[in-house]
């Protein structure tokens, strides 16, 4: 049991890092496509080795720590950002049950009763990497980036939480596996929670610091924001953490609103359970990759918000909408129970 879980977590770790690395390649290709360019095409066929070349470059660069920086926190910042980015993948159900050598196990690290809250808890700790790194740099641009990151993430957690409350009211469980099971029986949550899905998606953009909400590193105003002073692999960790967060957020969106590993009509084909599970896992990754593409698509086609616009949208737009969505969900739920008798 422990061994299979350990192997699963190791595989998950490798997949997460690979996807994050190739997201950087994907982002440059998508950007090139949207801007009618070719994009990276020198390292290997179609530039496929570009992420490796980038990684090697990051490691080779001089690792510089500014004299006025708080050295311990300067190192802790990127480490924390990377660690928290990797922690969430454990509770996401990547597939159904797989039977190998007479042993059945689920393609999910663990399914705690409070899986959704765990995702939240890790997301709320995630801001410390950026905050501590930015503050420890002892640079005003980095400090502004760090303060923006803190304000933005605390504000958008509220909208995210309210959209999740409506979802949990609907599914009646906080476990990620349970939410997928509910969707397998009743259909995908995006059908019942379209407004909640939009709120969640917008908040996910803000939580991952992706454009149009990339205020913390807004290069036109803040040079590089919180990572202005970082170089070499410390910078690499911050950038890598952003792509890991994007991958995990996409997987969470796919799990919560798009049925996770559920493929409609697959159970009627009478396939071997193992093959059905693998197809399910593949569909989970396909959904996740679609949302990663969506993140990139938005980044390269939408201009950045101003910080006050971001705050207005969060506090005066998404939070009231989230409360309205919660009220609608509660009313409809009550009425449907009432009519059922």
């Amino acid at each position: 049991m422990i061994i299979t879980t350990a192997i699963l977590l190791l595989v998950l770790f490798v997949i997460t890092l690979t996807v994050a690395a190739y997201s950087t390649y994907g982002e440059r290709k998508v950007a090139a496509f949207l801007q009618d360019r070719i994009g990276p095409n020198r390292a290997g066929p179609f530039g496929i080795l570009q992420p490796l070349a980038d990684g090697a470059k990051m490691f080779m660069k001089e690792d510089f720590i500014p004299a006025a920086a708080n050295k311990r926190l300067f190192i802790l910042g990127p480490a924390l950002a990377m660690t928290t980015a990797l922690l969430t993948g454990v509770v996401i159900p990547w597939g159904g049950e797989l039977t190998l050598f007479g042993e059945t196990f689920k393609l999910q690290g663990t399914d705690p009763e409070i899986g959704v809250l765990y995702v939240f808890a890790i997301a709320s700790i995630g801001v410390y990497g950026i905050m501590l790194g930015g503050w420890a740099s002892n640079n005003k641009f980095a400090l502004l980036g760090a303060v923006r990151a803190a304000a933005q993430m605390v504000s958008y957690e509220l909208g995210l939480g309210l959209s999740i409350v409506a979802l949990v009211m609907l599914t009646g469980t906080l476990s990620m596996g349970g939410i997928v099971d509910y969707q397998i029986q009743h259909g995908w949550n995006v059908i019942y929670q379209p407004l909640g899905f939009i709120i969640f998606l917008v908040c996910a953009f803000a939580e991952t610091n992706r454009a149009p909400f990339d205020m913390p590193e807004c290069e036109t105003e803040l040079v590089g924001g919180y990572h202005t002073e970082f170089s070499s692999m410390k910078l690499g960790f911050f950038l890598f953490a952003e792509y890991t967060n994007m991958f995990i957020s996409s997987a969470v969106i796919a799990t919560l609103y798009f049925g996770g590993y559920h493929v409609p009509g697959l159970d009627k084909l009478g396939l071997d359970p193992n093959i059905a599970t693998l197809i399910g896992a593949a569909s989970m990754f396909a959904k996740t990759f679609f949302f990663i593409f969506f993140f990139m698509w938005v980044r390269w086609s939408t201009p950045r918000f101003r910080f006050d616009q971001l705050m207005n949208l969060g506090w005066k737009g998404l939070i009231p909408l989230g409360i309205v969505n919660m009220l609608i969900t509660g009313t409809v739920y009550y009425l449907s129970e009432f009519w059922k008798g």
Binding site: I114, L117, Y118, F120, A121, A123, S124, I125, V127, Y128, M131, L132, W135, L143, A146, V147, A150, A151, M153, V154, E157
Partner: peptide
């Protein structure tokens, strides 16, 4: 989890925010 979300994730971020 609620303890982590509320205290570690929200209140301490505000502490850090004020100090910064």
């Amino acid at each position: 989890m609620v303890h982590v979300i509320v205290y570690t994730g929200a209140i301490m971020v505000l502490f850090l925010f004020v100090i910064m």
